[in-house]
């Protein structure tokens, strides 16, 4: 069973293709003291899909606000786009979150 939780009113999905935005969930389980006081998650629109993911890069902890979306490639079996951290260049599959190469 999935634990669906409401996102507070006023939060909207990103409209610009490939530009990472944030949603403040304000959910206790998503908040993290100093690093994420609003329980923010990141979201990006790409190829008619919305992808939602952690607001900070797991590798360097920098917010993913300037992360770049790359098209699917053989690493993601041509099925899912990829996300690259603008700061440390770590790259992840937006299909399953796995760290690539």
């Amino acid at each position: 069973s999935l634990n669906w939780c409401p996102i507070p009113a006023g939060q909207t999905l990103p409209t610009t293709e490939g530009k990472v935005g944030f949603l403040d969930t304000n959910l206790p389980t998503m908040k993290n003291g100093n690093t994420n006081p609003t329980g923010a998650v990141a979201a990006v629109r790409y190829d008619d899909n919305i992808y939602c993911f952690a607001s900070a890069c797991p590798s360097c902890q920098v917010p993913l606000s300037k992360a770049k979306i790359l098209p699917a490639n053989e690493e993601t079996k041509q099925r899912a786009p990829r996300l690259t951290c603008d700061f440390c260049k770590a790259t992840y599959s937006l299909g399953d979150g796995s760290k690539l190469q």
Partner: peptide
Amino acid sequence: SGPLKLYKLGEQKGKLLIVVD
């Protein structure tokens, strides 16, 4: 470092929903 955590989003009656652990 581990994988990037992904979240599932939904919409019901114009309200955004998210699946959390």
